[in-house]
């Protein structure tokens, strides 16, 4: 039955091949670039860099803001993910489970943070902070701004999840005399879990990637990974140094991905709830 469900696989396999190559090739090249010693320039006519050393790695580890940036970003992002999730839950519950006048309008309002270009948001948010004398609380300011910016994602995803909670399951649980907690566990949790995981994952990634707010509000005490990348890979890029950063920053992400893939697997409703 599964076999019959598959759509023609040839284009999908080609796509997979492209995706794999597109991951393997650039990162192999990045490794080579990162090993170029300043004493020998690597030109396209040679297959490998003429002089290989770990000089760039040492230089970047010691002289770039890599260390604080990693610490900051990987503290900020998980916190932002949890805060955003908590703020979004009640709204998503209302949107997913109730019908009320103006619901479509509310859904549109929820998209507002996406519609405003983040640089505009960043500049005026920082100006508000200064006027209120709160500018020194950079971490909390960025956290708040990230939570607001990423609420639309969380609300959309969780609304979908709440919509997918099956009313017959809720009713059945209630009819069988389950307590509210029990009802949540049986009827809500299986449908919500993938949404919650997706929300945490997406907000985490968005927060790790966010540049405008982190830069305008965060400098100079608060360097994040994107502000670091922007300065290294932007207009004055130096390929070798940029390659070192790209590689170092890929490592935590790969580990993270493995963990999340596990989460998502265990959150698969078709597997965990025996539904369908």
């Amino acid at each position: 039955m599964i076999a019959r469900l598959r759509i023609d696989q040839a284009p999908i396999l080609v796509l997979l091949l492209i995706c794999t190559l597109w991951l393997l090739i650039p990162f192999t090249m990045a490794v080579l670039w990162s090993l170029v010693d300043p004493s020998g320039t690597w030109t396209p006519d040679t297959l490998l860099p003429p002089v290989i050393s770990l000089y760039r790695w040492e230089f970047m580890w010691n002289n770039s803001l890599l260390q604080p940036a990693l610490l900051n970003s990987y503290t900020l992002a998980p916190t932002a993910a949890v805060v955003t999730l908590l703020l979004a839950m009640p709204t998503a519950y209302a949107l997913g489970r109730y019908d009320f006048p103006g619901k479509e309008t509310v859904k549109l309002i929820a998209l507002l943070p996406l519609v405003v270009p983040t640089f505009v948001t960043a500049i005026f948010f920082s100006s508000i902070l200064f006027q209120m004398g709160l500018a020194q609380y950079r971490f909390f300011a960025i956290l708040l701004a990230h939570a607001v910016l990423f609420l639309p994602f969380a609300i959309r995803i969780l609304t979908v999840s709440f919509e997918q909670v099956r009313q017959d399951h809720v009713d059945a649980a209630r009819d069988l005399g389950a307590s509210p907690l029990e009802r949540f566990r049986v009827a809500y949790w299986p449908a919500l879990k993938p949404g919650i995981m997706a929300t945490l994952l997406i907000v985490f990634i968005q927060s790790i990637e966010e540049f405008a707010i982190a830069y305008i509000v965060g400098t100079p005490d608060f360097t994040t990974v994107p502000t670091l990348l922007y300065s290294q890979l932007g207009q004055d890029f130096n390929r070798s140094n940029a390659a070192v950063l790209a590689l170092i920053l890929a490592v935590p992400n790969v580990i993270l991905m493995l963990i999340l893939e596990r989460f998502l697997k265990s959150a698969n409703p078709a597997l965990s709830s025996g539904k369908g």
């Binding site: 803001l65 100006s127 200064f130 500018a135 830069y215 100079p220 922007y230 300065s231 932007g234």
Partner: peptide, 25 residues
């Protein structure tokens, strides 16, 4: 201490912070 920055954004930041008693720069 040298933060990573952008030319215009640095200037904008200085102007935006001019109202504060103590700035960052």
């Amino acid at each position: 201490r040298i933060p990573d920055g952008d030319h215009i954004a640095n200037i904008d930041k200085m102007i935006a912070e001019a109202g504060r008693e103590t700035g960052d720069i």
